[in-house]
Design a protein around this nucleic acid. Structure first.
Lengths: 231, 231
DNA sequence: GCAAAATCTGCCCTTTAGGGTAATTGCTAA
DNA sequence: TTAGCAATTACCCTAAAGGGCAGATTTTGC
């Protein structure tokens, strides 16, 4: 029966993992608050709402743990954060995460904060600022919109990475030809400019189009503009 | 000598107008504050800095007077505004100007405001929030960046208007042809789809390219993407 | 050194793009 | 009613794009 038991455990884990992935696709909410009761309140709330939730009691714990906890979980994410924490404050977390912030909007929560903190939070790119007492529906609305923003940013980012990967496949010569194509040159003109035979231009152009997944000039131009090859 | 005097006056006015236009090109700063001494301080400051400055004592005066005052003056603009005013507040002005806000960033100034006001100002799209005591260099830096933003927005807006004006010149048929071109169709394919002769497609395409100021397909695609004809 | 890319090219063919000339039809504003 | 614009098309021509086939040279990583 030992075998059977182990099998069941594996099954459960698999289910749990699958479930977590499904939830994560809806959203991952990171919470940072030093009050244990508040943390568990948030955890309950967001879990009930169908999100994945990770709560931390300190900025350090958040910074260290967030990647490990959300390992293998893909999905839009945001951070709910009390500005006034002992030790490192929410504003410090903002700085620590830096560019990651674009993918993970910060929602600050505060009851006793000064205007200075609010201003600073916004200046550093904070997404929203909620003042206590917290209205649950307002909180959920804010979280939802933050997750939408995060999702959009992730999509854009992924799209850009995809395009740039394609551009990287191009050889030097192919890139040079395409660049001139995008400047409006005809093949004979490119042939003159690069001092290569017309047939060679055509070959490079053809290969580049294939690598960029473009069936025609219009698609090529679109792709190029999005990935900004021209620069 | 009467003639001469009048001539001189006209000259002066002309010069003044030219000067104002030159200043306006650098920036127009609207100021809203109920304290006369503060208003004149700002006016002096911004005039010295080479901007055009219009100061108002009430939201109503600003809303009524801004277009009249800045008549014929083109240039980036921003609004410096005290949140806590008697009567209509700075936040109300924000609402009153609505979409105009995009072209004219709001900079709020406050010493005694609550966090609630700060949050509201940002939520409504305020550009920045400065807390008293005001640091002059910080103020000027904020105004400068707001003016840059305003200038960029105006340029984008003008560019879009220009493109859309060109698109409007197209006849129904020309638009239809170009739309298919942008979907990647070749002329023969368009000929089939629209059930018109190949020569007709070419004529429409040619006319459309001229009206859109595009010398080749690449330029056409660029123009189309920017003006979003496809939608 | 060798194999795999990358670069280069000529010849030849078809399809597209672009455009000149000329003509017809229908609709609208002066 | 007439001039003008939009839309349509036929015929004819050139230039450009796209690509198959065959081969050369060069660079480069293992």
């Amino acid at each position: 029966m030992n075998q059977s038991t182990m099998f069941n455990v594996t099954e459960l884990r698999a289910t749990s993992q699958a479930q977590a992935e499904q939830r994560a696709a809806k959203g991952i909410v990171f919470v940072l608050d030093d009050d244990p009761s508040i943390r568990s309140s948030y955890e309950r709330l967001f879990t009930l709402e169908g999100f994945v939730c990770f709560a931390y009691d300190s900025a350090e714990a958040l910074i260290t743990g967030r990647t490990i906890d959300a390992e293998r979980l893909n999905g839009p994410r945001c951070l709910l954060c009390d500005v006034s924490l002992p030790g490192k404050s929410g504003l410090d977390v903002q700085e620590a995460l830096g560019s990651e912030q674009a993918m993970m909007p910060f929602i600050f929560i505060s009851g006793v904060s000064s205007e200075v903190e609010v201003v600073q939070a916004y200046r550093k790119g904070g997404y929203a600022f909620l003042l206590k007492p917290i209205d649950i529906s307002e909180l959920l609305a804010t979280v939802s919109s933050a997750l939408v923003l995060s999702g959009n940013r992730q999509q854009e980012s992924a799209e850009l990475a995809r395009l740039q990967a394609m551009v990287m496949q191009l050889t030097e010569r192919e890139r040079a030809v395409i660049k001139l194509v995008l400047e409006g040159c005809t093949n004979p003109q490119i042939s003159d400019r690069l001092r290569i035979a017309l047939r060679t231009v055509k070959v490079h152009r053809q290969h580049a189009m294939q690598k960029l997944g473009a069936k025609n000039l219009v698609e090529l131009t679109r792709t190029a503009l999005r990935s900004s090859i021209l620069c």
